Amino acid sequence: MAKVSLLGIPHDENSSWLRGPADAPPLIRRELRSDAHSSWSETGFDLSDRFLDHGDIDFSQPGDPWERIESEVGRALDAGHPLISLGGDHAIAWPILRAVRRRHPSLTILQIDAHPDLYDAYQDNQRSHTSSFARIMEERLADRLIQVGLRTLNDDLRDQVRRFGVEVVEARHFNEGLRLDLNTPVYISMDLDALDPAFAPGVSHREPGGLSTRQVVGLIQSIDQPIVAADVVEYNPRQDISNVTALVAAKLVKEIAGMMLRTNTAG
């Protein structure tokens, strides 16, 4: 039976504003496993026995956390299944994609986010969660970067968009039924602050005017190429209200997993 790997990456030391996303992976798992919710994806997969959970990376030991993330992601990918990483802040996308790119010489990143995360450095930190995609594009870890849901662009960031040839669909230009022209395997980088705070209040950087949960699910379900890996990041339980955002995060994990099974296998 085809599976989807899960890996928790509880790391938020490069968050620029609030800490908290390191607490997220076990809370997302709790909602994934809760009997209160359906275990089926909307695309028709019962996910109750489809996840191969590799646990959480242990950052208590000495060493460079980026090297540990890259190594552990590589080990999870060696199991042969598509991988969903549970963050953590968005800084972790850089070492994740180092491991993913080695296995996929053709790769498109679909980043769903309020922020482009393209600053060269933020607060003098080149590993900042606001800079991860500058590093990713500098290292050519994808052939294309498509960013959907942005609503925080400034002149510096627009310069970076042009520099790296990023394809942008700002939130103000998002249309129902958006279809992306994809022709390679896909990596989904799902920052929960892409959603309007009404749907996902549990994030460090609430940015009004965002996408709805339905719009994000619809975008994920429109992908017609193999989804080989993904991250779901920036859930901050310390900011959440009535566990709403944990539930949204688990819903998105289920829908990404369902589409992984649909696009990578016959089920």
Rank of each mutant, 00 (worst) to 15 (best):
D89L: 03
D89F: 04
H90Y: 09
H90G: 10
A91W: 02
A91K: 02
I92H: 00
I92P: 03
A93R: 02
W94N: 03
P95S: 08
P95Y: 08
I96M: 15
I96F: 02
R98C: 07
A99V: 13
A99E: 13
A99P: 12
V100K: 05
V100R: 07
R101V: 09
R101M: 13
R103A: 13
R103C: 10
H104W: 14
S106M: 11
S106F: 14
L107S: 07
L107H: 07
L107R: 07
L107F: 08
I112E: 10
A114D: 09
H115G: 11
P116W: 08
P116I: 01
D117G: 01
D117Y: 04
D117T: 00
L118Y: 11
Y119C: 01
Y119H: 11
D120V: 12
A121T: 10
Y122E: 04
Q123H: 11
Q123M: 10
Q126H: 12
Q126P: 11
R127W: 11
S128I: 03
S128D: 00
H129T: 06
H129V: 05
S131I: 03
S131W: 06
S131A: 14
S131T: 04
A134R: 11
A134M: 03
R135G: 05
R135F: 00
I136G: 07
M137G: 00
E138V: 04
R140M: 11
R140Y: 12
L141I: 09
R144N: 08
R144D: 10
L145H: 02
I146Y: 00
Q147T: 09
Q147W: 04
Q147V: 09
V148K: 02
V148Q: 00
R151D: 05
T152H: 04
T152M: 05
T152R: 07
T152N: 03
L153R: 04
D156P: 04
L157R: 10
Q160H: 14
Q160M: 15
V161R: 06
R162I: 06
R162H: 13
G165C: 08
G165T: 13
G165A: 07
V166D: 01
V166C: 06
V166F: 07
E167V: 03
V168K: 00
V168M: 01
E170L: 05
E170K: 06
E170S: 14
R172C: 10
F174H: 11
F174N: 06
F174Q: 06
N175H: 15
N175K: 15
E176C: 06
E176K: 13
G177Y: 08
L178I: 06
L178G: 01
L178D: 03
